[in-house]
């Protein structure tokens, strides 16, 4: 199984690869998009004031060279849920430029974009279906076979058993499957969260709320988002199930973190790498889980993905 890690800045690429990342994924938002589309998101990170998205043909050239030297593939995310009607040609142009620079894998969440790229532009590339595409079930996998898909990323709430059914439904025509393994287990289904993820607004999952009775007023505590800690997997962890994911047919493990601090990501990638490597040498699942727990002597987050 390969580890794919979210990259927010090309400065972190080498550190992530040395930590054990076999692949990275990142957002790319060039100036032409900002000029033409303004605040419309090109991918699921609308942040401008932190290094979350790459931009600039210059940086893309750097990244392509570094990726080639280290034989580490880079997937570019174009995974916003929908786009204004008149921007599809622009997105296709941007993707075409990326292909010319040597990029071959693109993460897509919008069926309309997939249809446009296939039918109106006949672009050939490795299309990766984002976890934000929609509910992934075996029927959808069969439906997607017409699009020549390279990989499907399972949404966060997919169980391992469901993944197994979906992988079987591909009959080998979709070669790769990716599952979340660390960080950001969101409140909401990625495909069904229509809130903003930008610099100036709290994400929906962090807005304080109260529990209210339909019958009357009650003095109910207020909940805010639990504070994040420095612990790996504090916001979502699937380390204990890497063996089960491997048995189910998962080929790629996703470490979420575009925009996270680099040193935290390096730590997270190392943990996933160590656990993945341990999977291969430890036969019994109980022993494997003991190994994982030994990585957290003061207790793990208990925020389990699976």
């Amino acid at each position: 199984m390969k580890i794919t890690a979210g990259l927010g800045s090309i400065d972190s690429f080498c550190a992530y690869v040395e930590a054990g990342a076999d692949e990275v994924f990142c957002g790319y938002v060039p100036d032409t998009w900002y000029r033409c589309a303004g605040n419309i998101a090109l991918n699921r990170r609308e942040v401008r004031l932190s290094n979350v998205n790459l931009g600039g043909k210059n940086e893309l050239a750097f990244l392509a060279q570094m990726a080639k030297e280290r034989s580490v593939p880079v997937a570019l995310a174009f995974n916003a849920h929908a786009y204004p009607a008149d921007t599809y040609p622009l997105i296709a142009d941007i993707i075409t430029d990326c292909i010319e620079m040597g990029y071959v894998s693109f993460i897509i969440a919008d069926l309309a974009l997939l249809v446009f790229l296939h039918t109106k532009r006949s672009l050939k590339a490795g299309w990766i279906i984002s976890g934000d595409f929609g509910e992934i079930n075996p029927l959808l996998v069969e439906y997607l076979l017409e699009f020549d898909i390279q990989r499907i990323i399972f949404p966060r709430s997919t169980t391992i058993q469901e993944m197994q059914s979906c992988i079987a439904a591909s009959h080998g025509y979709i070669p790769e499957f990716e599952a979340f393994v660390l960080n950001e287990k969101c409140h909401f289904h990625g495909a069904l969260c229509q809130g903003c993820h930008n610099d100036d607004l709290l994400p929906l999952c962090q807005i304080p709320y109260r529990l209210g009775s339909m019958q009357g007023t009650e003095d109910i505590p207020m909940w805010t988002q639990n504070p994040q800690t420095a612990l790996s997997g504090a916001t979502g962890c699937g380390l204990c199930d890497i063996q089960n994911l491997a048995k189910a047919g998962i080929t790629h493990l996703k470490v979420v973190g575009r925009g996270n601090f680099s040193d935290a990501m390096v730590r997270d990638i190392q943990v996933v790498r160590d656990c993945r490597d341990a999977c291969e040498r430890i036969a019994f699942s109980d022993c494997y889980r003991d190994y994982v727990r030994s990585r957290f002597p003061e207790g793990c987050s208990l925020n389990c993905y699976y």
Partner: peptide, 19 residues
């Protein structure tokens, strides 16, 4: 961060944006 400030090199009919 590129989204907040960036540059564009222009010359001879071509342009390249950069961080």
């Amino acid at each position: 961060p590129f989204g907040s400030a960036r540059g564009i090199l222009i010359g001879n009919g071509s342009s390249v944006d950069f961080a």
